[in-house]
Simulated assay, not measured.
Amino acid sequence: MSESVAGGLTHDELLALKHVALDGGLTGSVPVSCSGLGDRLDASTQTASRRLQALEAGGYLDRERVTDGQLVSITDDGERALRSEYADYRQLFESPTELTLTGTVTTGMGEGKHYISLPGYERQFESRLGYTPFPGTLNIELDTASVHARADLPGQASVPIDSWEDDDRTYGAATCYPATVERDGRAFEPAHIIVPDRTHHDEENLELIAPVKLRDELDLDDGEMLAIHVAEAEFE
């Protein structure tokens, strides 16, 4: 069985998705024949068809049957999977670069205050981030370009936060990315993007933590635009 890679895809599925993208599937619907795709994958027509079916079932591409074949386009989830793979190759072959994400301040569901203050997380924040976060997160709704660029986040500098448990339950792991938060030329650091391994947030939602209440520090109201500059990774 093929090992899962970007976005939960197998290597074989990711390769098929890449070929659809090379045919133009990222920008619109393109004709794809299973026999032609099979030749490029060095696989049978039936195998190529199964790969497309699996990608469609997983939400990575859309297919439309037409009289002379099928039209295929890559979905947002498919693009994110490709961008995640691209971020891995960037680490191998490119010099590190800073990532900037932009979006607007929004009101969250209030869960951050509870989780940020839990002792199993708080101890790790203090020792690994160097500060005790304000009890709550600043929620950002990313713009369209930043939703796509977010796929590069795993290639940036990061700090792991381990899972832990108490007498009642297990609490999931997370990853923190060092960042500088900027609004109208005013910048604040240290801050971190926090990405839980398990989250109900969509890709357009981002959470920030800092040792202060960022809303007060930067005079923020809902709907105001922010830039988040994510520290580049240091490759050895």
Rank of each mutant, 00 (worst) to 15 (best):
V147E: 13
S146V: 13
V147I: 15
V147C: 09
D152E: 12
L129S: 08
E126V: 07
E126W: 08
N139F: 01
T144E: 15
G120E: 06
Y121P: 00
R123G: 10
A145Q: 14
T132H: 06
P135W: 02
Y121Q: 01
Q156V: 13
L142Y: 09
P119G: 10
T144Y: 05
A145K: 11
G130T: 04
F125C: 05
L153G: 04
Q124W: 09
Y131M: 01
H148E: 13
F134Q: 05
P154K: 00
F125E: 03
R128Y: 01
R128W: 05
F134D: 03
Y131W: 15
G155M: 05
Q124R: 08
E126A: 14
G136E: 09
D152W: 10
I140R: 12
G155H: 04
T137N: 07
T144S: 12
E126F: 04
P119E: 11
L142N: 04
A145F: 07
G120S: 06
E141I: 05
Q156N: 04
S127E: 15
I116W: 04
G120V: 08
F134E: 09
P133A: 12
E122K: 13
L118Q: 14
R128G: 02
L129Q: 02
L129Y: 01
S117L: 11
F134W: 14
L138Q: 06
D143Y: 11
R128V: 11
Q156K: 13
L118C: 01
T132N: 05
G120N: 02
T144Q: 13
T137W: 08
G130F: 00
T132L: 10
V147S: 06
S146W: 07
R150S: 08
N139G: 02
T144I: 15
R123F: 03
A151G: 15
G136K: 06
T137G: 01
R123W: 03
P135C: 11
P135Y: 05
G155E: 09
Q124C: 08
S117F: 06
E122Q: 14
I140T: 00
P119S: 10
L153E: 04
E122D: 13
G155R: 13
T132R: 15
D143S: 13
D152M: 14
N139D: 10
L138R: 04
D143C: 02
Y131N: 02
S146T: 02
V147Q: 06
L153F: 05
L129K: 01
V147R: 15
E141F: 11
L138V: 15
S127K: 15
T137Q: 02
P133F: 01
A157Y: 03
D143V: 13
L142V: 00
G120H: 06
D143W: 01
Y121I: 10
V147L: 10
T132Y: 05
R128C: 07
Q124N: 10
T137L: 12
R128K: 14
T132A: 11
A157L: 13
Y121D: 08
P135F: 04
P154L: 09
T144H: 13
L153C: 02
N139Y: 00
R123D: 13
